[in-house]
């Protein structure tokens, strides 16, 4: 160690010191606002703390309660259902639009802006907008379906349709995935397309044998961030459905919020938060395990 240290020149020492000092705000922010509360919530999760009362240590009781808590399982399954629907749909739509917006057409940047716009609409505003779109009597969706002579739906008002409705609505937020896909598409080497053309391949072959494999790291990235994001879905339940009807849209984070702030059961809510953290960790771990099979990196071992 000592030998290594002495090899740093004065300039190097100065730079590394400044580097640490300049990185400090981010590091401190992470410690104070992320790691700190996480550790605190872990300890709370081992207590029966309700706001205003004195916490007492109860070990793993909160976690034991959870096993028998019907609403915990309900909210977990509702959230998983939403994730399984929303993530693939978002990926497909984002990818398809990125492919279209990667073509050489006139006014390209205008199109890109327009397709990105919905992502910029504040979450609550778009939720209120969608309440109207989903209105069974005079909403846009049912009006269109009625005119086309198709069966209509009760959308947010029926236990069966509420999560699918919210999944449809989630595609509205494809913009972020789309931008990342676009960036990925820019990085696909031209010469591979030319090689396919020389071999007599058409558009489909170009897509199937060049675009898709070269894009798998980007798809994987969007998949992981998408899963993590949708597990934490909250606004829709909070603004549009309040978890109803009959708890059919009781998303996990909404249940957690309700437990913490209307029932004031902070201890139990902290335990819920930790379980969600574990669930997301586990799912992400499984996704990474599975990624070895299908994600292609040009540089071997870059994963």
């Amino acid at each position: 160690m000592a030998a290594k240290k002495s090899r740093l020149s004065g300039q190097g020492r100065l730079e590394s010191r400044w580097g640490i000092i300049l990185a400090m705000p981010a590091i401190l922010g992470f410690l104070i606002f992320t790691i700190g509360p996480m550790i605190a919530s872990f300890f709370f999760s081992l207590t029966d703390w309700t706001i205003g009362g004195r916490p007492s240590f109860i070990g793993l009781d909160n976690y034991r309660t959870m096993v028998k808590d019907e609403l915990f399982w309900k909210s977990l399954s509702v959230t998983a259902y939403y994730t399984v629907g929303a993530v693939p749909l978002g990926l497909i739509i984002g990818f398809a639009l990125a492919l279209l917006l990667n073509q050489r057409v006139r006014g390209l940047s205008l199109w890109r802006t327009i397709y990105y716009l919905p992502t910029l609409v504040p979450a609550v505003a778009s939720a209120v907008l969608w309440i109207w779109i989903f209105n069974p009597d005079f909403g846009l969706l049912n009006s269109l379906l009625r005119q086309a002579g198709l069966p209509t739906s009760q959308w947010l008002y029926s236990e069966e349709a509420v999560v699918p409705s919210l999944i449809i609505m989630s595609t509205w937020g494809f913009g972020n995935a789309m931008v990342i896909f676009l960036a990925g598409l820019q990085g696909v080497p031209r010469h591979l397309y030319e090689a396919v053309s020389i071999d007599g391949g058409g558009a489909w072959q170009r897509f199937r044998h060049v675009t898709l494999p070269m894009m798998t790291p980007t798809i994987f990235y969007n998949l992981v961030t998408g899963v993590i994001g949708t597990f934490q879905v909250f606004n829709q339940a909070y603004v549009m459905t309040q978890g109803g009807p009959n708890n059919a849209s009781l998303f996990y984070i909404y249940y957690l919020y309700r437990t913490a702030f209307t029932e004031s059961a902070m201890g139990y809510a902290s335990a819920l938060a930790w379980v969600l953290f574990m669930v997301i960790m586990l799912v992400t771990f499984l996704l990474f395990q599975n990624a070895r099979r299908w994600v292609y990196y040009e540089m071997a071992g870059a994963r």
Binding site: L71, Y157, S158, E159, G244, P245, N246, N247, R258, T262, E263
Partner: peptide
């Protein structure tokens, strides 16, 4: 009452649908 409300409300929603 908080806990009771969490059980009661979904049932009332079912009656209502």
């Amino acid at each position: 009452m908080d806990k009771i409300g969490n059980v009661l409300t979904p049932a009332l929603q079912q009656i209502e649908t």
